[in-house]
């Protein structure tokens, strides 16, 4: 079971996560009495990078119209900033006393804090990206909801004109998202649902066309109406399943276990 649910997050955090745990073990196993190196230079580099990240993060928050992102991201930035301060303090303490035990603890705490903060930050951002895709999915759901009130060819043409770009965007976004996920089962569900949506869309339009034509000819439309509603409902179910799976992370399933 992968720890990080997207390949991007995994590629950024996994190496640091491994190094932090390795170092914690090394640190715990190390015999007391070893002098610590001077870490002033690398700590300063980290501090500068954190300052930059915080600046970029704040700009992103201010420019975003995603209320959840605006609410959740500041805490992650503060976490990273606080961790950076711990590293600075540790470095200063080690300069004064290379054997300082509290300084070592601060170093580990700082490293873990930066890892947690950046992890939260990436998750916040990732969730925001997912919300953007879900917004597009919901547009498709809204169009599907009006399929059953389309009664003229003119309205049907407009319906197709409205639905097509939305479906194309959903298809492109979900396809890209699926490729980003590390969780195989989630990927498979997204691929399956997206395939169904792509197959069902032209059949639905065809079904709607038959309904409209029968109606124009004054013929019975009960069966055509039922068929159209069934297809729209199937597409709605598939899109809802896509929305559900997009929101899943491997962490959810760990909690479930």
């Amino acid at each position: 079971m992968p720890v990080f649910h997207t390949k991007t997050i995994e590629s950024i955090l996994e190496p640091v996560a491994q190094q932090v745990s390795r170092l914690v073990i090394l640190h715990e196993e190390a015999e007391d009495g070893n002098a610590m190196p001077n870490l002033e230079r690398p700590v300063l580099a980290v501090s500068n990078a954190v300052a930059n990240l915080v600046k970029v993060g704040r700009e992103t928050i201010n420019n975003s119209d995603d209320q959840i992102l605006r609410q959740e991201m500041p805490a992650s930035l503060q976490r990273v900033e606080k961790a950076s301060k711990l590293l600075e303090e540790a470095s200063a303490m080690l300069n004064a006393d290379p054997y300082s035990q509290p300084a070592r603890k601060k170093l580990i705490e700082g490293a873990r804090g930066i890892l947690q903060g950046t992890s939260n930050l990436l998750l916040c951002f990732d969730e925001s990206e997912v919300r953007k895709i879900i917004k597009e999915c919901k547009k498709v759901l809204d169009y599907l909801a009006v399929a059953e009130v389309i009664e003229t060819m003119e309205d049907l043409v407009q319906f197709v004109k409205d639905l097509s770009p939305c479906l194309t965007k959903v298809s492109r976004d979900v396809d890209a998202r699926e490729k980003e996920l590390t969780h195989m089962v989630h990927r498979e569900i997204l691929v399956r649902c997206l395939d169904s949506v792509k197959t069902l869309a032209p059949i639905l339009i065809c079904g709607m066309k038959i309904y409209v034509q029968l109606l124009a000819q004054g013929k019975k439309v009960d069966e055509a109406g039922e068929n159209r509603n069934y297809l729209a409902a199937r597409m709605t179910d598939e899109i809802n399943e896509i929305i559900r799976v997009l929101q899943l992370t491997t962490y959810d399933e760990d909690e479930w276990d």
């Binding site: 950024i12 932090v20 070893n34 190196p37 990240l53 970029v56 993060g57 930066i114 951002f125």
Partner: peptide
């Protein structure tokens, strides 16, 4: 241990830069 800490801080540095790039890329 000496090399370990320096390596970790270098990785953290790189990690922060990558997070920043992620934000900038997706934000644009």
């Amino acid at each position: 241990l000496r090399v370990g800490w320096e390596q970790l801080l270098t990785s953290i540095h790189r990690n922060i830069n990558e997070v920043e790039n992620q934000i900038l890329t997706r934000d644009s």
